[in-house]
Computed example of a mutant assay.
Amino acid sequence: MLKDNLSRQTVIITGANSGIGYEAARKLSEKGAHVILAVRNEQKGKAAVDSILQGNSNASVEMMKLDLADLTSVRNFSSTFIEKFHQLHILINNAGVMIPPFGKTKDGFELQFGSNHLGHFALTGLLLPLLKKTPGSRVVTLSSIAHRGAAIDFDNLDGSKGYKAMRFYGQSKLANLLFAKELDNRFKEHGIETISVACHPGISNTNLFNLGKGETPKYLKGLMKWFSQSAAMGALPTIYAAADDSLTGGEYIGPDGRGNRKGYPAIEIPAPGVYNEETITRLWTVSEELTGVQFDF
């Protein structure tokens, strides 16, 4: 059952200046939450805050700068947030980079793995002290149907032995899913009340790329309604994962339609073998080593 009243709850949403993150920020602020839009582009972030306030003058929203492709920025954001706020009810790890040309983060990680997974891993670990002391807190991490058939190539995480954008995107989204599951396992193992939930938006219009032409071709626009859904619909699994009282942690939420590409949110069962214990443990260890962030459970 979705909570109708989130007043006096503090929510961080990464990448909330557009798409899924923006829609989730708008809806959660309507429920009374104080929402922090944690964004890399401050100009776009301020525009998103203004847009939310135009639709709801009572909304409590603000923008804070966060670049997940720069661990110094992640640390600065976390320390600033902890100084300003005494509780964190919901952390939504939403921001994502999708199939860019080969590139690296400020710290030398492959851009998709570094931003989508390692940046969020570090952010969550640094904010853990606040999450632990906030009753009923939860972490929501966005994965993707692109995790299906993906694998973590531990021998080529930096892309130095070859790079294929879609393969590396799938790897980063699989890492998001495994992180969310293992985080919940460790919360339960240490008797911590905080829960961790994973979700994905199916295929939403925000995930379609423009083939380098600046605008989506007309023939694709006509097909969109058949294989994708709006950002507002794509945000529903995020909102469900963030505000549904029935969740106990470890769930994976996605659209209920064919192939989980579109529809209304429901608990989804990942493909058999996705939660491989050896892979999960190795990913956690490697993530701690690469980021220098240790989780203080």
Rank of each mutant, 00 (worst) to 15 (best):
R258L: 15
R258P: 06
T281F: 03
F295L: 04
V49Q: 11
Q294M: 13
V274K: 02
A241Y: 05
V74P: 06
I20H: 04
F168W: 07
P265G: 10
S51K: 12
N210C: 07
I92S: 04
N116C: 06
T134P: 02
I195K: 12
T279C: 09
N76H: 09
G162C: 07
K46D: 14
T72R: 12
T10K: 06
F209D: 14
G15I: 00
S7R: 11
G259L: 13
M64C: 06
R40S: 11
Q43I: 14
D70E: 04
N156R: 01
E23Y: 12
Q229S: 08
T206A: 15
W226R: 09
S196P: 10
L127Q: 09
T248W: 00
D107F: 01
E23C: 15
K104L: 14
G55S: 12
T248K: 11
L211N: 15
S57L: 03
A198F: 07
V140E: 13
P217C: 11
N41V: 05
K164V: 14
K31H: 11
S172V: 00
S196F: 05
A151Y: 06
G263C: 07
I267M: 12
I145E: 15
S228D: 03
P255E: 00
G234W: 03
L6F: 13
A241I: 01
A180Y: 04
H117Q: 11
L290Q: 14
N41D: 15
S7G: 07
L131D: 01
G103N: 12
F168Q: 02
A24V: 00
V293Y: 09
D107Q: 10
G170D: 08
A198G: 10
F85K: 12
V74G: 13
G292C: 05
F81Y: 14
G202P: 12
V139R: 00
A95C: 03
R75M: 02
F297A: 08
I152E: 09
E277A: 13
Y252L: 07
T124R: 05
K161T: 09
A165F: 03
V97A: 01
N156K: 09
K218M: 11
E215A: 14
A25F: 04
N207I: 07
G191L: 08
K161W: 06
M233C: 05
V97T: 04
N276Y: 04
G254V: 10
D4L: 13
K46C: 07
K104N: 08
T281M: 08
I12G: 01
G45M: 03
I145Y: 14
A175C: 10
K44W: 10
W284L: 06
D4V: 01
F154A: 06
I280V: 13
T216F: 04
L208M: 08
S29P: 10
Q112P: 12
V39I: 14
P272K: 06
A25N: 02
R258H: 11
L53P: 10
N207G: 15
Q9N: 12
I267Y: 02
N58D: 13
R75W: 02
N94F: 01
E193K: 03
R8Y: 09
E110C: 06
V274G: 04
H190Y: 08
T14R: 00
G273T: 07
Y169K: 00
H147Q: 15
A146F: 01
N56Q: 08
I269D: 09
I195W: 10
K27S: 09
K161V: 12
F209R: 12
P100C: 03
K262M: 11
T281L: 12
G119S: 05
L130M: 09
A59Q: 08
F209K: 14
